[in-house]
Amino acid sequence: MNTHQHVGAAERLKVDIQGKSFRTSNGEAIDVLRDLHFEVEQNEFACILGPSGCGKTTTLRILLGLEGDYQGVVQLPGSSEPRIGAVFQEPTLLPWRSVEQNVRLALPKHLKNTRLDNLFRVLGLSKMQMFYPGELSLGLARRVAIARALAIEPDILLLDEPFVSLDEATAQQLRNLLLAVWSEQPTTALMVTHNLQEALMLSDRIIVFSDRPAHVVGTFDIRVPRHSRNAQVRADLLRSFNEKFAGRGFGS
């Protein structure tokens, strides 16, 4: 049986999932997750890295409370009702509400009248608050999704491949923006990605998933501060990562 356990004010994210399976249309059960255990410390930025279709998104959906039927225990940081800032694979903005309304609608009650100017300014959205999502490019829509996730002052930030299907320049710009807003109010963050370079640039720790059914193959801690991760440092990190996880196909 599953429980979203919240014992007092937990400080870190704790995932202990024994198993999670899906039933296909012809009645067959497919194991997606098996013996998946990991933790993310408070205010740590972690990345889940793994082959595509291995269950990364399923793990995130369990944390978001969107998948119920699993065996195990998941403990989110924060109070009994932790606020989750979610950035989905697609921006998932309401097309019939303006940019500002989209962000404001997600705000919890006590933040309803908070000023968002600073957040919009940092993300370069100041002139677009009255726009409708249909008038934005994918990159801009993703920024709004990030703004929404951070505006609620989340206990945990969960991101599902937020930079996928953008050209590299836009993706890089968006990664820098995410780091800028995240550093202003650090919070526990967990990001799903299949881009090793991205994980090496953003995270304090990389959690490597196996093929389906997914379990943790190992973790890779990065102790170099983000601002000093230049090209040389990233190349070194990449080499030691590949040494540690040789033969797992993350050579990119």
Binding site: T92, W96, R97, L105
Partner: peptide
């Protein structure tokens, strides 16, 4: 369903769900 899930994750109140998620899609 993506909008419903978004509203669930961000804990929209029921009135907000009807007004901002349900009715615009049913318009």
């Amino acid at each position: 369903p993506r909008y419903t899930e978004m509203a669930q994750v961000y804990r929209f109140r029921s009135l907000d769900r009807i007004r901002h998620i349900l009715l615009p899609q049913l318009q």
